[in-house]
Write a protein that binds this DNA or RNA. Structure first.
Lengths: 161, 161
DNA sequence: AGTGAAACGTGCTCCGC
DNA sequence: GCGGAGCACGTTTCACT
């Protein structure tokens, strides 16, 4: 079993430097990236293609400002489910994942079953969401924790050397 | 005070359609976006420029796969601070925001002061982070909630019509 | 504000090292 | 695997409606 690892060793230090750059700014040109990592355009482009083909780079997106779109309320919702039948739980998870105000859904260890991050314009919109949520399936306990301020919201992952 | 709103009315339905597209896929070409929203290239490009100038589009980034980078552990850390002196709190918030394994920091309403989303490769790395965290300032209570699975992680915001 | 086409700069490909 | 040159494509600009 020597050498059995789930992460495949396809990335060197230069690949990691490329990833650190593009996860901060995807509008960088190939030549800009190339010069920053000390490569010429062609090998740099080939590495980017490889990283995309491997799914290490999943996709490129634009980040929007939630406040400027009127989305001023972020709420974390902690859910304990009543029924623990596998079917009920999976169905519930699918339904909440489809709601567009639900940005993140995590299945948790411990007493909490699910943690949601929800973003809405105002309290009325959250109330409407909440009513829809509790009508989906019987829930043992639902705790809503309201954010006052987003001090840091980072999409860039910490890449070890 | 009629007409006093913090959101400026600069966006119409077409702008919103453009935003919905680019926040899902920033690799779309102008001509692709233009045809999908029913415009020719020039006005579509001008709208994109305007949305960037207004800061509604903040930036463009590449999304990486955390699992393929060996980041297999996501932990939500809920913090109650001991000292509530304004200076201590701000200093604490700045320090945790600088840690790269801390992706999100929210200041919360209610009994919890801060909620962090932390991503690390493994339990040992989380332990190291945890020790650094509690050494920063005296904390009244720290609760770590471990995620077993990320069912949904969405960056695209819900844009009302 | 929108259209169509021209000018420009990059991304992508092919070649040799 | 790396670097340079050429072609094709996308983006930016311009003249006009």
């Amino acid at each position: 079993m020597v050498g059995m690892r789930s992460e495949i060793r396809v990335m060197d230090a230069i690949d990691k430097r490329i990833l650190r750059l593009v996860q901060k700014d995807a509008s960088l040109s190939i030549s800009e990236i190339a010069s920053q990592v000390g490569l010429s355009q062609t090998p740099c482009w080939k590495r980017l293609q490889k990283l995309e083909a491997l799914g290490i780079i999943k996709r490129r997106i634009a980040l929007l400002d939630p406040l400027k779109l009127g989305l001023q309320m972020t709420v974390f919702v902690l859910i304990e489910i009543d029924s623990h039948s596998q079917q009920d739980i999976e169905h519930f998870a699918e339904e909440i994942a489809q709601m567009e105000e639900v940005l993140d859904v995590y299945r948790m260890a411990g007493d909490i079953d699910y943690l949601l991050r929800v973003i809405v314009p105002n309290a009325a919109a959250f109330d409407a969401f909440y009513k829809r949520l509790i009508s989906l399936t019987p829930l043992k306990k639902v705790t809503s924790r309201f954010a006052l301020e987003g001090i840091k919201t980072e999409t860039a992952l910490p890449i070890a050397n």
